[in-house]
């Protein structure tokens, strides 16, 4: 695995002269899926790769140990074993990239993964007043420390939108930097909440700022905003990752979250990563898909690939 991005000193000039033409960005995003497609065993293989990039997520008020345990078991066995066998992919360690929960459920994950004998699966916890981030910095930082103490190795923080929208980028930088410190060895994924940033220029700026402050990943959204992981947003964030890499040689990961439901979408996202950033960004170390229902559709597609029949929902294990 590559070295973690240590971040760089805040430099306002990086935010100057940023030009983004949304119609042109949309056009690229629209044609991406039509320029690249995968069929047959390529499709099956790509879908399995997508599975290994999923942060299998539950973020609900009514989460309890029961459904968290189900989630953890599913993370270990994301695709039915007989299907994997048919593809000769059994025993290849196909699991999701992580499970993702609220801080209060981290301990449940530890317990469940232990039961599932899947302690190798990282536990990601959202934190810092997720999803709105409208809590005092002190408690937001404390939340990170709690989650890490409970066993989370990845922390999905939300940035301060009030700062971003009022142009206080240095404020955003300082907070994320402190959050990174609070994470310690846990990896930090900075959620931009793109749907609340108003413009693509702000999405780009927020991306750069979070990387400068030492984020390991930048992530589109909480899944709770009006607009979440759309391809145009992903394109802009990938461009920012590329630009940051060109300036610093540090590789920062990308996580698309919110609204990704179909297997086809997952392949398109992989294509986007492959085309815009290269093959390295198609692996869980640098690419994640935050999703809950996506896995079900992928499993259905693989079922179809293997059997030639369309699956019934009840045949496949719930997450």
């Amino acid at each position: 695995m590559a070295d973690r991005n240590p971040g760089v000193d805040y430099d306002e000039t990086w935010l100057h002269n940023i030009y983004i033409n949304l119609p042109a960005v949309k056009r690229r995003a629209d044609t991406l899926a039509t320029r690249r497609t995968v069929k047959k065993q390529w499709q099956a293989a790509w879908l399995l790769r997508a599975v290994t990039c999923i942060d299998l997520t539950t973020l609900s008020g009514d989460d309890t140990y029961s459904n968290v345990e189900r989630l953890c078991f599913k993370a270990k066995h994301p695709i039915q074993n007989n299907l994997l066998k048919a593809l000769n992919m059994q025993d290849k360690g196909i699991s999701t990239a992580a499970v993702c929960v609220y801080p209060s459920r981290v301990a449940d994950c530890v317990k469940a993964l232990k039961k599932a004998r899947a302690m190798h699966i990282p536990i990601a916890s959202v934190a810092t007043g997720f999803p709105a981030g409208q809590s005092p910095l002190k408690t937001r930082l404390e939340e990170i420390r709690c989650a890490v103490a409970d066993g989370a190795t990845e922390i999905d923080i939300v940035i301060n939108r009030q700062f971003a929208l009022s142009g206080n980028w240095e404020g955003v930088y300082d907070e994320v930097k402190q959050m990174r410190e609070a994470c310690g060895d846990a990896h930090l994924k900075a959620i931009l909440a793109v749907g609340e940033l108003g413009s693509m220029v702000n999405v780009y700026k927020a991306s750069l700022i979070c990387m400068m402050a030492g984020s390991d990943f930048i992530k589109t959204s909480t899944g709770k905003e009006g607009v979440n992981a759309t391809l145009p947003v992903g394109l802009i964030m990938c461009r920012a990752i590329r630009d940051y890499y060109e300036r610093t040689k540090y590789k920062v990961g990308f996580k698309a979250a919110g609204g990704i439901r179909s297997a086809k979408d997952a392949c398109t996202w992989l294509s986007l990563m492959k085309e815009e950033l290269g093959d390295e960004w198609t692996k869980p170390a640098l690419f994640r898909l935050g999703a809950s229902s996506l896995l079900g559709d992928i499993e259905r597609q693989i079922f179809h690939h293997v059997t030639g029949h369309y699956a019934s929902g009840q045949e496949l294990p719930l997450a």
């Binding site: 995968v38 390529w42 293989a45 790509w46 399995l48 593809l87 000769n88």
Partner: peptide
């Protein structure tokens, strides 16, 4: 290379 496992690792495009 063109098995599911091969492609799973290489993530190459195939004929479509």
């Amino acid at each position: 290379a063109n098995s599911v496992e091969g492609i799973f690792h290489s993530l190459t495009y195939g004929p479509a």
